[in-house]
């Protein structure tokens, strides 16, 4: 019993160390607060939104921001605030699921390439190079078009196009860790290769993976919005990109329709990038003071 408590105390103390360094960075704290608010909005969307996202009121179309409709209404008289709030849910879901997929595949592929080296490494990394030669947006669009419109397909497209970035980061970190003597020591006690990668390599390269993931969520949100903007998402759900796309024909007369979903995209990506940068600095032992 006492052993468990001790282990927990130790782990927490390491966490606190990173936490303190993170808190010293004001921008990172700002990003973190924004991120927490965004996540809370996504969770409590039902409570926060005053109207259902598909409720249409033809008596009040194109209303500017007012008390009943803080962000105004759109061409169908739908409350933009409610739609942006529900959109948080969708954007975050797409971003996190696609990111989890690409992180999983990227980590496995990158670790294999880095650990085994030689011909396997060459094949995997050249393939990644080919994928990275194509701009991510173009790549995501072409995959999404091939698979057809829809949120699931958009997620798959985003996930596939993010795999090479993860694979690169993981491979580079694996290369530095695999020549450490403790990996040789692990071999000398009879660890299997899978176990070495899982218990000796992976925990030691976690920091760059976390940073890459945090920054990757921001990119994934933009990619998701872009795909919806181009009509490759689901037209029935209030995705931010789709809202921006629908509002663009009214941009001259009713700019609030495009401003608020755009602002939501910007704030969420900004918060993730600020937080990601802060995390990178906090997790980097070289910057310890």
């Amino acid at each position: 019993m006492s052993e468990n408590i001790q282990i927990q105390a130790r782990k927490r103390s390491q966490f606190i160390e990173v936490w303190r360094r993170l808190c010293r960075n004001r921008l990172a704290v700002l990003g973190m607060i924004l991120l927490v608010v965004i996540v809370l909005v996504a969770i409590f969307a039902d409570v926060i939104a005053p109207y259902p996202y598909d409720f249409q009121d033809y008596s009040s179309v194109f209303l500017g921001p007012c008390l009943q409709h803080p962000f105004g209404t759109d061409n169908f008289g739908r409350d933009i605030f409610s739609r942006v709030v529900y959109g948080t849910r969708i954007s975050l879901r797409i971003a996190f699921i696609s990111l989890a997929g690409s992180a999983l595949v990227g980590c496995i592929v990158g670790a294999i390439a880095g650990f085994f080296g030689g011909i396997i490494d060459a094949i995997i990394m050249r393939f990644c190079d080919i994928m990275m030669a194509i701009p991510r947006m173009v790549m995501a669009i072409s995959i999404a078009t091939t698979l057809g419109p829809g949120l699931t397909n958009a997620m798959i497209a985003i996930a596939i196009s993010s795999v090479p970035n993860f694979a690169r980061v993981v491979r580079a970190s694996t290369l530095t860790v695999k020549d450490q003597e403790y990996v040789e020591a692990a071999q000398s006690i009879g660890c299997s290769t899978a176990r070495i990668i899982r218990k000796y390599i992976f925990p030691n390269i976690l920091a760059p993976i976390i940073v890459q993931a945090t920054l990757g969520v921001g990119t994934a949100i933009i990619l998701a919005a872009s795909l919806s903007f181009l009509g490759l998402g689901d037209p029935l759900v209030p995705e931010w990109g789709a809202m921006v796309s629908a509002a663009r024909s009214y941009i001259r007369d009713y700019p609030h329709m495009i401003a608020f979903p755009g602002l939501a995209i910007m704030l969420s990506v900004l918060s993730l990038n600020l937080f990601g940068d802060g995390l990178r600095d906090a997790l980097d032992p070289k910057l310890k003071k």
Partner: peptide
């Protein structure tokens, strides 16, 4: 191993 500083897994 020769160097105990590096032959243990730090995590």
């Amino acid at each position: 191993f020769q160097d105990p500083m590096t032959s243990l897994n730090p995590v």
